[in-house]
Design a protein around this nucleic acid. Structure first.
Length: 519
RNA sequence: GGCGGCGUAGCUCAGUGGUAGAGCAGGGGAAUCAUAAUCCCUUGGUCGGGGGUUCAAAUCCCUCCGCCGCUACCA
């Protein structure tokens, strides 16, 4: 039976332009999806856009177009971002699609059948911007006389009939679920927050609105549209065919292996969503990981500061794969991090250009000039050769373990241990000396190094698919031998012609800095 | 206010009872295959302060200071 893996990003709210944070979440999921595919899993990788709600309705009105045309336009921005970041998603869902409307209405009816929905009345302060209600006591009154939520969003008094979800009834079952599934929420500190939140007691959740219309209609309840979070969360099952739970995709991929989310939307995913699912008779996802935020040069990213980082800008400046690498290497995944020019350039020039890029270049160009531009014929391996090959071959199980915990930084660190070992091996073996004293030994050393590069190239593909593709081209590794199973079974064949090497990670030279070179 | 976390080398962090660690940055050297990259050596810390337990504490306990997250409440 084929192993399967279902991973999702949040669906991104279309009232926002793609920024570094969106790229981060999406790249992280992309690495996992690519890794699992190369490891022989059948993968479903979902991303998409969240397109309903009062905020979108108002933004569209402000733009003078209808909401559907507005979301068509803005949703495309996120598709474009995926393309720009080399994202390998299998599907891109939009909450305005018919399949999703059908799924939402179905889950609503399932909740209703289970007795978890009742009609009540909601009165309270509502912030359109946050899509959330606030208590009177949470508000502050500004000098302009307007009430604002703690987030700074303006609130308005809303009094309307509303359907409620009996969330309070699910408290115990949620706690039992967390208890039985200690890895459901990660990192562990977030899990504690979730558990203590639920332990404090849950109140029923208002899940319909009557004050605007840009949403999914509640079945048999004219005037009511669904609460955006019930709508949005359901996307994860829409995409695999809900409400047809007997279909192949659904049976294969549900429950999802991982919902990747930002820490701001953890509660929706770790509390409301499992409750909705259990109430609808479906198992909750296996895991929700809440990652951290990026600051920029030490400051919070914000529109008012005007320092919101566009993925396009940094990719244009540093290159796509260096950016992908940086995002996952610089910060222990789960923590907040800082995106700075200095840190980015350090990683690019230090880890990528000097350590890895130069390793590839020194080995490949040596082979090109001194080994007939082909994979050398190795002699017997010595202890040092076996040691280095052993380190490279030992990476896969480590990466599997780290990536199953979303510890991207540790996975990359492990890979770079081998890069360092390979650079040391080059110096110790000194093939430039062997060339004169022992050409056969030189060939063995070069073979070992090429083979280590093959491992590194294959294993780094999830992180830097484009660049590693070029490295593997330079090693003449056939396209169909780039999956993980080929690591063991398809060693480089001596005599294979190798193309002239081209640097894979050029150093980043500061704009306006002296290019060097002297005369 | 409650719960939780953090405070270790200039920077980012690892290290949960047994002689203080890594990467980067800084200093010195080697080598010359390579993207002036690499390799070796090295400077640097009273592990936030204080007290306690222990033969032994960054690691356990108490307390104080500072920072952060979740959450509650008062006004």
């Amino acid at each position: 039976m084929t192993k399967t893996y279902y991973v999702t990003t949040p669906i991104y709210y279309v009232n926002d332009r793609p920024h570094l944070g969106h790229a981060y979440t999406t790249v992280a999921c992309d690495v996992l999806a690519r890794f699992k595919r190369l490891d022989g899993y059948r993968v479903h990788f979902l991303t998409g856009t969240d397109e309903h709600g009062q905020k979108v309705e108002k933004a569209a009105a402000a733009a003078g177009i209808d909401p559907q045309a507005f979301t068509d336009m803005v949703s495309q921005n996120f598709r474009d971002m995926c393309r720009a970041m080399d994202i390998s998603n299998d599907d891109f869902i939009r909450t305005t699609e018919p399949r999703h409307i059908r799924a939402c209405q179905a889950i609503w009816q399932a909740l209703e059948r289970n007795g978890d929905i009742y009609l009540g009345k909601y009165a309270g302060w509502y912030a359109v911007r946050d899509e959330a209600f606030y208590g009177e006591d949470e508000l502050t009154i500004g000098p302009d006389g307007k009430r604002r939520a703690p987030s700074g969003a303006e609130v308005e008094w809303v009094e309307e009939p509303s359907y409620f979800f009996r969330l309070s009834a699910w408290q115990d079952r949620l706690l039992m679920f967390y208890d039985a599934n200690p890895d459901f929420v990660a990192p562990a500190s977030r899990r504690n927050e979730v558990v203590s939140f639920v332990r404090q007691g849950l109140t029923d959740l208002s899940i319909s609105r009557t004050t605007f219309s840009w949403g999914i209609k509640v079945p048999n309840a004219p005037g009511h549209v669904m609460y955006v979070w019930l709508d949005a969360l359901t996307n994860y099952i829409t995409a695999i065919g809900y409400p047809d739970t007997e279909n192949e995709a659904f049976r294969t991929f549900w429950p999802a292996d991982l919902h990747m989310v930002g820490k701001d939307i953890l509660r929706f995913h770790a509390v409301y969503w499992p409750a909705f699912l259990m109430a609808a008779g479906l198992p909750p996802p296996r895991r929700v990981f809440a990652h951290g935020w990026w600051t920029v040069e030490g400051q919070k990213m914000s529109k008012s500061l005007g320092n919101v980082v566009s993925p396009y800008d940094i990719v244009a400046k540093y290159g796509l794969d260096p950016v992908r690498y940086f995002l996952l290497r610089e910060v222990p995944f789960g923590q907040d991090g800082d995106f700075s020019q200095r840190a980015m350039v350090n990683r690019l020039n230090g880890d990528l250009a000097n350590d890895f890029g130069n390793l590839a270049q020194r080995v490949l160009s040596f082979i090109q000039r001194n080994a007939g531009a082909q994979v050398p014929e190795p002699g017997p391996f010595q202890a040092a050769d076996e040691r280095l090959l052993g380190e490279a071959r030992g990476l896969l199980p480590v990466l599997r373990r780290e990536l199953d915990e979303q510890a991207f930084h540790k996975a990359l660190d492990a890979i770079w241990q081998v890069v360092g070992a390979a650079n040391r091996y080059v110096d110790e073996q000194a093939p430039w000396t062997l060339r004169k004293t022992d050409p056969e030994r030189m060939n063995t050393v070069l073979y070992v190094l090429a083979e280590v590069l093959r491992h590194l190239g294959i294993l780094c593909q999830p992180f830097m698919p484009g660049t590693m593709g070029r490295l593997l081209d330079q090693l003449a590794v056939p396209a169909q031998e780039r999956h993980f199973a080929a690591l063991e079974t398809n060693m480089l064949k001596p005599g294979t012609k190798l193309p002239p090497p081209v640097g894979i990670f050029p150093r980043y030279v500061e704009e306006g800095a002296a290019k060097g070179g002297g005369g």
